[in-house]
Design a binder for these strands. Structure first.
Length: 590
RNA sequence: GGAGUCGUAGUUCAGUUUGGUUAGAACGCCUGACUGUCACUCAGGAGGUCGCGGGUUCGAGUCCCGUCGAUUCCGCCA
C-alpha cells in the first residue's frame, strides 16, 4: 500500500518499472473493455489502464466512483496515444491490482480544475475545493514564501518572538475581537490587531531586531482583500531611520520575487510623498502599471477663465477643477453615461468631458469658454486629436479622490493596466492626524506611536485644524500594483512627544495611563529610537498567485459576513459556558 | 450602517420583462452498449419546498413587502 511514486512524477524513463500509486479517482473512462482511470494527488494526475483480461482488477475498476481513495499497483508503460496536455501524458500504468482504501459519497460538486460551483458551496466543502491543483498550488506557494521570509530575517540577525494572542484591549484603531475572561469575570482580553505594542516593548528590552509572521484580528467589515483574521510579517528594528527599514524590506521582496518568480526586482523601489501621490493620482496607493501613467491635471487656472458656473462656484469655495486624460480611445455616449453615474455615486455632481478630434473639440463645456481657454486646456493637458479629457470639480480632496477612482475605472474599462508588471512604490510623509468630523476630534492617521517629522514638532502644541493636519509623519506604506502591501513608521520613543500626541487625539492623562500606562512606563527606562513595519502577507501571496482576492491564499477563509461556512462558525454556546464567563446575552431591539 | 447583483434539479444556468397546460438545458448520478480514451461516445432513466415567511390574485418561479445567505462597492479598516 505504500506508494513508490506520486501521481505527478512518472516519465518515459520510468517505463518498465513496477510502481504503486496512491490517490483519488479523478475520472473514470469505461470504454466497455478497457478502462482508464485518472488518479490524482497533490503532485499531479496519472492515467491508469485496466485491461479486461485482468478480470479481478477490472471488476474493482468497474466499482470505482469519483473521489474514491485507491492504491494501484502495476507497470509503467508507454501510451499508445500521447496526451501533450499533461506532464505525465507520455506514460500510463498498466494496473495489476487496485486496493480501495476508502469510498466516497457523490460529491456536491465535481472536483475539477475548471470549477463551476458557487463560492459558498466551495467554502462549505473547502476540503474538496482544496483538492484542486489551482488551490493547492496557492498554499504551496504561500508556504514557500513563508520559508524565504524566515530564512531572510534569520540571515539578518532578527529574532523571531511570539507575542500574546490574548492581550489588552486598547482604544483607537479597528474594533477589537474580545475574549471574556473566566477567572476575571467582567474583564476581557482582546485579540491583537497587530503586535504593535509588544514589538515596541521588545525594542526597549534590547532585542534590537524582531520579526514574526503572525495572525492579526480586526472586527471590521470585510472586502475581497480583507479577512477578519489575516497574516502579517511584523518587524521592528532599533537605532534605525526610515531608509534602513526600506532597505531591509526591499531585500526581502527581492528574494521573494527572485525565488518565486525568477525576477530580479530593480532596487531601490521608487518613492513618492503622500502629497505627491494624492495630487497626481488621487490616492495614497497609486497603481503605476497604467499605460500613459494618467496623472491628474490641475485645470483650476484655466477653469477660472470659463463662464461655467459650477466651476466658478467650486473655485470660489476653494475647490479644484482637475482632469484625467484618456489617450487615443474611442469614447461612446454610453461609456460617458456610465462614468458619470460612477462619479455621482462617489458624491461628485457630474462629469465634464472634452473630446479632441481631428475636426475640432466636442464638449458640452465648449459653449462656456472662449477658444483661447479651450486651447489653454489642451495645452496644459497636452492633449492631441483622439484624446478625451474627463473633468471633475469639487472640494479638493474629494475631487482628487474621485479622480483617483475614475483613473482605475478607466484603466479597467479600456484595459490600460499591464498585468504582467510589478510596480513597487514607497509612499512617505503621511499626515499624522486627521480631523474626524463625526467625533469632533483629531484621530491618528496611522497609529498613535508614529513619530512626527522633526520640522513639524512645533505644531504638536497647536490646536488649529490646518496646522495639526499639516503635520507630516515618519510614516510610510509600500504600494504594489495599487495595493497597500506594507505599512510602517518610525516610532515615538520619548514620553514627552508621546504625551503631546495623546493630548491632540483627546486622550486625557488618566485615560492614557489606564490604556497605555505600561508602554509609557517602559519608555521611561531607556527606550531606543526604533521603527518598523508590517507586511500584508496574504496580499503579497495573492499578487504572486495572480489573484485579486486573498480568499484563495487562505486554507480556511471566512465570508464577507465573517463566518466560516465549513464549520458553521461563529456559533451559539451553551448557557453554562456563558454563566461561567459571567456573560449575559441581550436581545437586539427590532 | 447604506447601495447594487445573485438565490430555480446534486452542480452551472435558462425561464421572471408581459402572472396562465405537465418548470427546461448542460454537466453530474443510475441502467445498458462499446477494447485506446483523456470534456470518451451512444441509448435510456431517476432527480424540483423555484432560499425562507407573508401579501396581492381565480391563479405566483414570475408582482409587492419582509427576512436569510453569498458577492461587489461606499462608510469602516490606527
Amino acid at each position: 500500500m505504500k506508494r513508490t511514486h506520486t501521481c505527478g512524477e512518472l516519465k518515459t524513463s520510468d517505463i518498465g518499472h513496477e510502481v504503486l500509486l496512491n490517490g483519488w479517482v479523478a475520472k473514470r473512462r469505461d470504454l466497455g473493455g478497457i478502462i482508464f482511470i485518472d488518479i490524482r494527488d497533490r503532485y499531479g494526475i496519472t492515467q491508469l489502464k485496466i485491461s479486461p483480461e485482468k478480470k479481478s482488477v477490472h471488476d474493482v475498476a468497474l466499482s470505482l466512483g469519483n473521489e474514491f481513495v485507491i492504491s494501484a499497483k502495476g507497470k509503467v508503460v508507454k501510451r499508445e496515444s500521447i496526451n501533450k496536455n499533461m506532464p505525465t501524458g507520455e506514460i500510463e500504468v498498466d494496473v495489476d491490482s487496485i486496493e480501495v482504501l476508502n469510498t466516497s459519497e457523490i460529491t456536491p460538486f465535481v472536483v475539477e480544475e475548471d470549477i463551476k460551483a458557487a463560492d459558498d458551496l466551495r467554502l462549505r466543502y473547502r476540503y474538496l475545493d482544496l483538492r484542486r491543483n489551482s488551490l493547492t498550488s496557492n498554499l504551496v506557494l504561500r508556504s514557500k514564501v513563508y520559508q524565504i521570509v524566515h530564512k531572510y530575517f534569520e540571515k539578518h540577525d532578527f529574532v523571531e518572538v511570539e507575542t500574546p494572542i490574548l492581550m489588552k484591549s486598547t482604544p483607537e484603531g479597528a474594533r477589537d475581537y474580545l475574549v471574556p475572561s473566566r477567572v476575571h469575570n467582567g474583564k476581557f482580553y482582546a485579540l491583537p490587531q497587530s503586535p504593535q505594542i509588544y514589538k515596541q516593548i521588545l525594542m526597549v528590552s534590547g532585542l534590537d531586531r524582531y520579526v514574526q509572521i503572525c495572525k492579526c484580528f480586526r472586527d471590521e467589515d470585510l472586502r475581497a482583500d480583507r479577512q477578519p483574521e489575516f497574516t502579517q510579517i511584523d518587524l521592528e528594528m532599533s537605532f534605525v531611520t526610515q531608509d534602513d527599514v526600506f532597505e531591509m524590506l526591499e531585500g526581502m521582496f527581492f528574494e521573494i520575487w527572485k525565488e518565486i518568480k525568477g525576477i530580479d526586482l530593480k532596487l531601490p523601489f521608487r518613492r513618492m510623498t503622500y502629497d505627491e501621490a494624492m495630487e497626481n493620482y488621487g490616492t495614497d496607493k497609486p497603481d503605476l502599471r497604467i499605460s500613459g501613467d494618467m496623472k491628474i491635471v490641475d485645470l483650476s487656472g484655466e477653469a477660472a477663465g470659463t463662464e461655467f458656473k459650477v466651476f466658478l462656484d467650486t473655485l470660489n469655495a476653494g475647490g479644484t477643477v482637475s482632469a484625467l486624460k484618456l489617450e487615443g480611445k474611442e469614447v461612446t455616449r454610453k461609456v460617458i453615461d456610465n462614468l458619470t453615474e460612477f462619479v455621482k455615486k462617489l458624491g461628485i455632481g457630474g462629469l465634464g468631458y472634452i473630446k479632441f478630434t481631428s475636426e475640432g473639440v466636442q464638449s458640452p463645456l465648449a459653449k462656456f469658454m472662449s477658444e483661447e481657454t479651450m486651447n489653454a486646456i489642451k495645452e496644459k493637458s497636452r492633449a492631441v486629436a483622439g484624446d478625451t479629457l474627463f473633468i471633475i470639480s469639487g472640494e479638493r480632496k474629494k475631487a482628487l479622490t474621485a479622480l483617483g477612482q475614475l483613473r482605475l475605472r478607466l484603466a479597467e474599462e479600456f484595459s490600460l493596466t499591464d498585468e504582467g508588471r510589478f510596480e513597487f512604490l514607497w509612499v512617505t510623509d503621511f499626515p499624522l492626524f486627521q480631523y474626524d468630523e463625526e467625533e469632533s476630534r483629531f484621530v491618528a492617521e496611522h497609529h498613535v506611536f508614529t513619530m512626527p517629522k522633526e520640522e513639524y514638532l512645533k505644531f504638536l502644541d497647536s490646536r488649529v485644524r490646518e496646522e495639526v493636519e499639516s503635520i507630516r509623519a515618519n510614516c510610510y506604506d509600500l504600494v504594489l500594483n495599487g495595493n497597500e502591501v506594507t505599512s510602517g513608521s518610525i516610532r515615538i520613543h520619548k514620553s514627552d512627544i508621546q504625551k503631546k500626541v495623546f493630548d491632540i487625539i483627546g486622550l486625557t492623562d488618566e485615560e492614557a495611563k489606564q490604556k497605555f500606562g505600561f508602554i509609557l512606563e517602559a519608555f521611561r527606562y531607556g527606550a531606543p529610537p526604533h521603527g518598523g513595519a508590517a507586511v500584508g502577507f496574504d496580499r503579497i501571496v495573492a499578487i504572486l498567485c495572480g489573484l485579486r482576492s486573498i480568499t484563495d491564499t487562505i486554507a480556511f477563509p471566512k465570508t464577507l459576513k465573517a463566518s466560516s461556512l465549513m464549520d458553521d462558525c461563529p456559533s451559539e454556546v451553551a448557557p453554562s459556558q456563558l454563566e461561567e464567563l459571567g456573560v449575559q446575552l441581550i436581545k437586539k431591539q427590532g
